[in-house]
Amino acid sequence: MFVFSQGVPFLAEAGSSFLTGSVWLPTDSFAAGAWGIFPIILGSLIVTLGAVAIGAPLGIACAVFLAEIAPPAVRRVLVPSVSALAGVPSVVYGFFALLVVVPWIRGQFGGFGTSVLACWIILSVMILPTIISISTDSMRAVPREYKEGSLAMGATSWQTIRSVLIPAASSGIVTSVILGMGRAIGETMAVLLVAGNSVTIPDSIFAPVSTLTATIALEMGYATGAHQQALFAMGVVLFVFIMILTGLANLASRRRVTF
């Protein structure tokens, strides 16, 4: 791909200091070695893992609810709602977060409000549809006989969900979480609006943070020369993360649970 042709030579030249250095001063041509994106990579990881930690339990629980418990009427409302949630443009999520979540954090906890926490909150909402829809599908694919067998043995419905349904659907659930992680790490606009985008390692969840995606989007507009190539190299790093996650998702979905 084209992105590689621009990014890889830079990566090779800058070498490991690009990945591990912690000073990012792209427009200062005198500062040697100011191409460190370690805080940015770390920012991406912190933001993504936090969002998944909040979004995954909620999403999986909602999927169980949809697949097993919800009365048909509730399901008829909830399923289109989840797809509407998936369709809302990310910039609209960012807008909402900027006007509602950020002022709330500022009021409650001080600081600027644009922070790690704001990213976690809005990203965990944004990955819900991915997790819910894929998990629900995998739970629905569990053969009825398993559930009926379990219920017939005297297990209660919660016991059946916990020890039959979830293990049997586990490969789909894991896949959904990994894909949700991919969505979170690749998300740009919402993060760009609420992260604060300062290239430092955040010292608390109320501190601003900067991610790979947001930095690319923010600086591409004025970057030239080596700076531009550095941004492409960041794109390559992001791409590698996504490829790893896609590979893991493929592995997870291939794994079949047998009884």
Binding site: V64, F65, I69, V82, A84, V88, V92, Y93
Partner: peptide
């Protein structure tokens, strides 16, 4: 308790959507 939590998760998802859409 667990069943209530599952209901809660389903309702919470719906509420999140409604809050965001209704607000804007």
């Amino acid at each position: 308790v667990p069943m209530g939590l599952l209901w809660g998760a389903g309702i919470a998802t719906l509420v999140i959507l409604i809050v965001i859409l209704a607000y804007i």
